[in-house]
Design a protein around this nucleic acid. Structure first.
Length: 491
RNA sequence: GAUCCCAUCGUCCAGUCUGGUCAGGACACAGGCCUUUCAAGCCUGUGACACGGGUUCAAAUCCCGUUGGGAUCGCCA
């Protein structure tokens, strides 16, 4: 496909296999595909590689589309949007694969094989015992078995050249050479008459006129096989870009055992999509200056092959949290409230139809905003804005809840109650005056009040916090705490 | 085991192509300032070119080797 300048149009594909929840690695691959296409005003194709019927998971497709949309990665062709190159589910393209498989057999470039799995296992084990790479012994290669791709007793295998080299051009690494003798005669059509990944991917990338293939580095060895296949068909080979892998802290390929790596986990803990996108982009790509925080538009503008790295990178959850906090701060209080509200409901702090004023929620958002790294941090830091403390921080008790403090808290409660105006100045006056009267530092009053009203030792500015809570709640909580001290503290 | 990929602070990146400025920035960490606490903010600090040979007046940068890490070797993708 050409664009209107007569140049070859950029067409990339994201080709997930619906076998489970989308992973950070998959999503990063999707992201780079997308960024490249958007930078070059090209097309993004979403193609579903559902050729594995054993591992097929009907939930997976929705999870994948949800994950992409959450990040803002849209597609121009594929499920739910259609397109001229469909169908976009490989399971609906079987006749296409069968046709091309037959063609290869007729040309003498592929053959039918009826070896049993038992036989294949035996052959591989024998080779392994001899310390050789486990491969198929090409038993059926010259037998000219008569069959058909739809025949469930046979598979179709490619006649991989027995000697010579295959050259793979990786746009980042340059030429990578493989000895053909190291490749097996790969299966193209399985005995269930579904294509293998390798076969389907090559046929579809060709038919869908994919110009650039972005995928993980772990595919490099397979890419060699794909080149052999493209050559067998005499098809033009798309440009290939193998992205560095994402590792866990132990430097092994990132996987479930490293904790939350499914994209839905990040959604759940309250990572913002903009932060995730920004972070993921910087994992393996960088612009030439020191910019770290930038929005999608800016990234699209700057994204190019040159900035992509070749060495693998460790996924640093800490840095993602930091970046997320930067994005949380960009929100207005009411935007933050909107994000936070579902969590409040989930935690039973609010009822769905609660009449609690938007103003209250916004004030909470504003005061808590710069102390949140992710939305769920609110659960421990902001609980007291909604729920009266049932217990107090143990270290705080030790430092601040002496028996003598109970009376002081009662006194402050009384003075608060008598206040006509409930604003920062009046509250602060009460506290400071009283401390002065007692000949104590203000901290001696402030800390116990914080603990009594919030249950916590730390938090936002006390006076602002008390204003938001409101006089009635504060007075009530102070009296409750004073009583608690008298009941529980001996000295 | 075979093949392939990779190698700069603990982590992510810049610098490598086009050898030459105390190897720069960010996260994390430590200390200080601010402050009623915590966080934020500001200031300061610790901290890296895997190793060995070449080439060169000069090597993180070019070449070779070694070591280390990783990936792949299915009728999974």
């Amino acid at each position: 496909m050409k664009n209107n300048l007569g140049e070859k149009m950029v067409r990339v594909r994201f080709a997930p296999s619906p076998t489970g929840l989308p992973h950070v690695g998959n999503i990063r691959t999707a992201l780079f595909n997308w960024l490249f296409a958007r930078h070059h005003a090209g097309k993004v194709i979403l193609r579903i590689e559902d050729t594995d019927r054993e591992r097929f998971d009907p939930e997976a497709l929705n999870a994948i589309m949800f994950g992409l949309r959450w990040l803002g990665l849209d597609w121009d062709e594929g499920p739910e949007v259609g397109g001229l190159f469909g169908p976009y589910f490989q399971s609906e393209r079987l006749d296409i694969y069968h046709k091309f498989a037959r063609e290869l057999v007729e040309k003498g470039k592929a053959y039918y094989c009826n070896c049993s799995t038992e036989r294949l296992d035996r052959v591989r084990n024998e080779l392994r015992e001899k310390g050789l790479p486990p491969m198929y012994d090409r038993h059926c290669r010259e037998l000219s078995i008569d069959s058909d791709p739809t025949d469930h007793n046979t598979v179709v295998r490619l006649k991989v050249p027995l000697w010579g080299k295959t050259s793979l051009r990786d746009e980042l690494r340059g030429e990578i050479l493989f000895d053909n003798s190291t490749f097996d005669d790969i299966v193209l059509i399985k005995s269930d008459s579904f294509p293998t990944y390798h076969f389907a991917v090559v046929c579809d990338d060709h038919l869908m006129e994919i110009s650039h293939i972005f995928r993980g580095e772990e595919w490099i060895p397979s890419a060699g096989k794909h080149v052999i296949l493209f050559n067998a068909f005499d098809w033009e080979i798309p440009q290939m870009v193998h992205l560095p892998m994402i590792l866990g802290p132990d430097r092994a390929k990132l996987s479930k055992r490293h904790g939350a790596t499914a994209i839905t986990e990040f959604v759940k803990v309250g990572i913002m999509p903009q932060a995730m996108l920004n972070f993921l982009t910087l994992l393996g790509w960088s612009s030439k200056d020191d910019t770290e925080i930038f929005d999608v538009e800016e990234i699209i503008k700057r994204f190019d092959l040159n900035g992509i790295n070749t060495s693998p990178s460790v996924f640093d959850f800490e840095k993602l949290n930091w970046m997320n906090s930067e994005y949380i701060r960009k929100l207005t209080p009411s935007e933050l409230t909107k994000k936070l509200k579902p969590y409040y409901i989930e935690w039973d702090w609010l009822k769905d139809d609660d009449e609690i004023s938007e103003g209250y929620l916004d004030r909470v958002s504003k005061i808590m905003q710069e102390r949140l790294r992710k939305f769920t941090d609110m659960k421990s830091l902001g609980r007291f804005f909604f729920i009266e403390p049932e217990e107090y921080d143990p270290k705080g008790i030790k430092n601040n809840f002496k028996l003598i403090v109970a009376d002081r808290i009662m006194e402050v409660a009384q003075r608060f109650e008598n206040l006509e105006k409930w604003d920062e100045e009046s509250i602060e006056n009460v506290v400071r005056e009283y401390a002065k009267q007692l000949g104590l530092g203000a901290g001696k009053i402030i800390h116990p009040i914080r603990l009594a009203s919030s249950g916590l030792r730390m938090g936002p500015s006390l006076f602002e916090m008390l204003i938001i809570l409101g006089k009635d709640k504060v007075v009530k909580r102070l009296r409750k705490a004073a009583a608690w001290i008298k009941d529980n503290i001996m000295e």
